[in-house]
Amino acid sequence: MKKLNLLSLTLSCALGFASCSDNVTPAKENQLTTANSKSNTSKVAAAPWVKQFEDTFDVGSNLSQWTKEQRADYNSWYCDYSSSVPTTQWRDGKQCLEIKTTKLSTYKYQSGFITSNYQYKPENNTEYMLSANIKLVAMDGGTYKSFKDTYGAWPAFWSVQGNGWPTKGEIDIMEGYSFAPGSSRFTSNIFYGTSVGANLLGNSAERNYPANFNVDGNNGWHLYESFWKMKDNVVTVTIKVDNVTVATYTNSSVSNLNLNNFGQHSVIFNVNVGSKDSNFIDPNKLNLFTTVMMWVDDVTVYKRPI
């Protein structure tokens, strides 16, 4: 979830750790709720995969498997997280986790940040698959807008060991950045260091999603996955979107990376707004309309021997 220039990154990290070809125009809520289609985002995890963790975010759930943050974002001057923001809602005919942004003032937004109590990492000769079906959408009053039409939204799906960041690593599966009009960028990334608060990788592990990834495709729903394995003590992390590989990381992929030193990771969903780096996200251009929302239909972790 870190995407600042190296100077800003070092300052902020001292505080802590912090797709598809079909163009679909967002519709009214009554139209969206009848769609109820995942298409190519359906998960298949047959034997020898064994489920380790799951949340289907049933409406009325108290999100007891998660910790909801109440604090300022470490990477932005403009976003505060409230524990009241992550809720479960019916969206697109699905029961979803919803994280919604709210503009509090010209330069201040309220949003949500949720961390799983469950943690995991691969033992030798095992592989973990972390998957989530996610939709990003904005609203202008009662009208749905594309995420790409906003400016300054920064949603993320990632895993991390927060204690002693980044010494136990961070894996960013999806980070989205909106730069209106009609523009967005999606990446994966990895962070690591040997001293608390000092990321040795900069953004050298950042990998852009394929150029043909369309956040509005498939009615906005996409399957984001991280495959984290250790085979004969060699660690590999593979990131996929809609079953297409975005990036594959090994220790030789990036200078100073040591995946073997990664610790147990929690799963995180959050929506940040703005940045501490005004050259990256200009605070004077922030525009999320009425709100930007992240909807998460489900999240699962499977494990298998390899």
Rank of each mutant, 00 (worst) to 15 (best):
L288E: 00
I173R: 13
K38A: 11
V271C: 11
K145C: 11
N208H: 09
K285M: 08
Q95R: 11
K38C: 03
V301C: 07
Q161H: 14
G197L: 14
L32C: 00
S61P: 02
Y107I: 00
M139E: 08
F213I: 00
T248K: 05
S19H: 01
K94I: 02
W228Y: 12
Q31E: 15
T150N: 06
T25P: 02
N189S: 12
L259T: 10
M139I: 06
K28C: 13
K231G: 01
R91T: 01
S159Q: 11
M294E: 07
V237L: 08
N199A: 07
S204K: 14
N279S: 10
Q52Y: 02
P86G: 03
L97V: 09
N125I: 05
K68R: 15
G274D: 12
N256F: 09
W228G: 07
N233G: 00
W90I: 15
T150V: 08
L200Y: 13
K43Q: 12
Y192T: 09
N287A: 04
N189V: 02
G142T: 15
V296G: 06
V160Q: 13
L136M: 14
N117G: 10
D216S: 15
Q31P: 00
T291L: 01
V44P: 01
M174C: 07
K240F: 08
K103M: 07
G176M: 10
N5I: 07
C20I: 04
S255L: 10
V235P: 04
L259Q: 07
D149R: 11
T10L: 14
I99P: 03
T10E: 11
V246T: 05
L97N: 12
I171Y: 08
Y107M: 08
F147M: 14
L288R: 05
N284S: 15
W154Y: 14
N270E: 07
S76F: 01
Q31S: 09
V292R: 01
F113L: 09
Q65S: 11
K3S: 13
L4E: 13
K68C: 04
K148P: 00
V254A: 07
A35N: 11
L104V: 14
G182H: 10
G164F: 02
T101P: 02
G93L: 04
S105T: 14
N251H: 05
A247L: 06
N219I: 06
E127H: 03
V301W: 10
M293C: 14
L15R: 09
T250A: 09
E123P: 02
D282W: 09
N208T: 06
